[in-house]
Design a protein around this nucleic acid. Structure first.
Lengths: 173, 173
DNA sequence: TTCTATAGTGAGTAATCACTTACAAATTTA
DNA sequence: TAAATTTGTAAGTGATTACTCACTATAGAA
């Protein structure tokens, strides 16, 4: 990966996250990256290819975030760590996650399968803890996770640390 | 409001919700509505005006949905009704709500103020029920509400009625 | 050094974009 | 009925879109 190739991806990530995918022209991306527009198509074939490169490069971040949970075996901790997951997003990755959530609505690609392993881990946890409806409890946690992620990524959560403490207290089960 | 004017709004609502606002051209809207493209600008000045008309026309739907909660006085019921609110969205309004959530990401207009009265009603409810942290409890409910709305509007919630019963059971406090 | 492959450019391309204008048809008002 | 206003259309407008093409610069291998 050359320096200019990286510039293109970073510029595209920034613009796609700020303005949206369709609203961002390849011309704008090239200008922000400091390269000729043609270079984008040399490296990424077309605009969609550029988007794919960004998403694929970021897939690792999803796995990195989930890793902490997957190596955990204690049921209670699994649930706790899931619920506070969005707080672990580092500031420099916020833009990437904003793009991910934007794309979930802009394009119609539902990555519900991406949460599948987490869902099963949760179901198993609730089963171990003898909950009556493990599947529904897992669905509940994931639904809340969606809302919490949205709040954090959009920055609408005013009292971050307070809310995090509140959640930890609430989910010590 | 003439018949053609209605056709334009309906076509725009459908396309904006499906493809997104920026990705939908006024040409496409006109074709689906069965009118000349110029008529859109005669009635709505510009593309943004068309979007405004759709949103303004739908603002009433928000109030109608919230009405059930605002006339409720019993704290427990207020919380219960809030949590099951997204289930009350009629099928024919799903497209409108999809557009609302899409726009929340596509444009950067945060309508957090729209939830303000609901938030205050919730805080007051938790206060009356002597909860330790009424503000955080309200924030928790609203965060979950965001996730649940997303799931219902995107249609990713598989077991609707089951999940609804589960929530009612969980939130009988 | 020369050959080859890749990186990079800048000026194009047709198509599409939101929007305008000149004009006609329909409807309302006087 | 005649005048005035509103509704509607078709054919444009310049700007912008994603993308192409002919070309040059660079760097590593033979």
């Amino acid at each position: 990966m050359t320096k200019k190739q990286e510039n293109i991806i970073n510029a595209a990530l920034q613009l796609f996250a700020q303005e949206g995918y369709t609203a961002t022209s390849t011309n704008k991306v090239a200008k922000l990256a400091g390269v000729s527009e043609g270079l984008i198509f040399r490296h990424f074939t077309n605009k969609e290819g550029l988007l794919k490169a960004i998403i694929e490069e970021g897939e690792r971040k999803v796995l990195t975030l989930f890793e902490t949970i997957f190596k955990e075996t204690e049921p209670k901790k699994i649930i706790q760590k899931t619920i506070t997951l969005p707080f672990l997003i580092p500031n420099e990755e916020l833009e990437f996650w904003k793009l991910q959530f934007k794309l979930k609505w802009e394009l119609n690609h539902n990555n519900s399968n991406k949460l599948k392993p987490l869902q099963e881990k949760l179901i198993h946890s609730f089963k171990t803890l003898n909950y009556q409806n493990p599947e529904l409890e897992a669905a509940y946690v994931l639904t809340f996770l969606e809302g919490l992620s949205t709040a954090i990524i959009k920055g609408t959560l005013t009292n971050r640390t307070e809310f995090q403490d509140f959640l930890i207290y609430k989910y010590q089960l």
